[in-house]
């Protein structure tokens, strides 16, 4: 049995804003085991980033606020760790890379200095050794002219290069869990393939667990062992990659899979979408969060929130359709259609 490294339990998190309390994460639970990749998918604004940024404690309070729940890393409750305590974990145990590397790279500092600082924060080694290590890391992530690159500033790199630099920094201290928030969303497919292969190599070589947020179902299929589907601040379905792709149970998951383009040209018809928009999280609906957009919505859905129903040891979903009293409905497109 693989050890569970990270566990998030019944976690609720809000932002206090002028307009009111934005309930960004509304009671979610998930876990990550040693050496596995968990993909978190879901519409933008569904709380994916807020969920993982909480694991890293990256959201300042105020405006952020933990309402309830626990975050447990290797058996230790880190929910209320101070910044000082977190410093011990960040980089060494848990590392994070972002969609937009510019937000986390310091624009006024040379790439080399940023990597070297990262290394020396955790390892008291001489600068010359850190420089060597930095060059090795940049080579490992595929930066051409690694030595030259040390003296360049972030803005002179293209998006793909910046992401590689970010990964190099994130990996500098061999973390046990790499959290990647849309790491390849800003990249083209060939660079994406290389970055994903790089991440998979690291997973194999060092046994690193990966938590990956992405909206590209192609990337999910390629990377994930398990998937958590988020909608309006909740995890509405979770399961292995096969379960989610081949036997999804939640109407939102169905919609997500249906949005994979099946026609290849605008002349052949419209793309399928999930009509409507997600609810406002300042006043979230009291029943199922998906009710306003769900084709199968019943009276109960608007009134009472569905409980999580387990379908197998690894799969569960929150939907009233899974209640035995509900009518049987069929998913429209059974198959995950292949691209031509």
């Amino acid at each position: 049995m693989k050890e569970t490294l990270l566990e998030v339990k019944q976690f609720k998190f809000s932002f206090d804003t002028y307009a009111g309390e934005v309930q960004a994460v509304r009671n979610i639970s998930f876990h990550v085991k040693e050496g596995e990749t968990l993909a978190i998918v879901g519409e933008s604004g569904s709380g994916k980033s807020v969920a993982v940024q909480n694991v890293m404690k990256l959201i300042p309070s105020p405006p952020g606020r933990i309402i309830q729940g626990q975050i447990i890393y290797q058996g230790e409750d880190i929910t209320h760790y101070t910044d000082r305590q977190m410093e011990q974990l960040r980089g060494k145990e848990l590392s994070m890379i972002f969609q937009d590397p510019m937000t986390s790279l310091n624009p006024t500092m040379k790439i080399g200095d940023q990597i070297i600082e990262g290394i020396r924060n955790h390892e008291p080694i001489p600068r010359a050794d850190a420089v060597k290590k930095a060059i090795k890391l940049l080579t490992e992530v595929g930066i051409p002219d690694p030595k030259d690159s040390l003296s360049r500033y972030p803005h002179t790199f293209s998006g793909g290069m910046r992401q590689r630099v970010m990964i190099a920094i994130a990996l500098a201290c061999n973390p046990k869990i790499l959290i990647a928030d849309e790491p390849t969303t800003a990249l083209d497919v060939t660079t994406q393939t290389q970055i994903l292969e790089l991440m998979n190599d690291l997973k194999e070589k060092h046994g690193t667990s990966i938590v990956m947020i992405t909206h590209d179902l192609g990337v999910v299929a390629k990377m994930a062992d398990r998937i958590a589907v988020m909608y309006a601040g909740k995890i509405v379905e979770t399961g292995t990659v096969e379960e989610i792709f081949y036997q999804p149970k939640h109407p939102y998951t169905w919609g997500l899979l249906q949005s994979i383009p099946k026609v290849s040209s605008k002349r052949m018809g419209k793309l399928e979408t999930i009509p409507g928009t997600p609810p406002d999280l300042i006043a979230p609906p009291k029943g199922c969060g998906f009710a306003s957009r769900c084709k199968f919505c019943m009276n109960i859905c608007k009134e009472v929130e569905p409980e999580s129903v387990s379908i197998s040891a690894s799969q569960s979903a929150k939907c009233w359709l899974l209640d035995e009293r509900a009518p049987r409905v069929e998913r429209e497109h059974e198959e995950v259609k292949k691209y031509s």
Binding site: Q192, Q194, V336
Partner: peptide, 16 residues
């Protein structure tokens, strides 16, 4: 290099 949204699909190693 386009990733295929099907977990059973065996992606060929990128030639690039």
């Amino acid at each position: 290099a386009i990733p295929v949204p099907d977990p059973k699909h065996e992606q060929q190693q990128s030639t690039l």
